[in-house]
Amino acid sequence: MAESPFKADIEKVQKEYGEKMTPGAIVYIPGSSVVNKTGGWRVFMPKFDKDKCIRCFMCYTLCPEPAIYLDEESYPVFDYEYCKGCGICANECPTKAIEMVRETK
């Protein structure tokens, strides 16, 4: 299973970011938003059926977060730490391999 592309960055941000005001309030670490785990916003979560997937990359292409990445076999992996559960992937999947289900927490 491939890693989320953001894992390395989180470590970097957590290591380098101290809450110290910079002149002009500059943000010095690009991509530091990754420490903000937006997965908590989710009400419905995408449930993925690998058997139905034709690896068209539609879900990967159209994810606004992005919270979908591809594994070595080019199947989508859903990053639930960031997925806000908008459901675009399920709506656009041509083979209905993704279903939005209410999340139970």
């Binding site: 910079t22 002149p23 002009g24 309030a25 500059i26 943000v27 010095y28 690009p30």
Partner: peptide, 14 residues
């Protein structure tokens, strides 16, 4: 302190 340069991507005015 800061200047916009792709070699060192910073955000100004957040």
């Amino acid at each position: 302190h800061a200047y916009l340069d792709p070699a060192k991507p910073i955000t100004q005015g957040a």
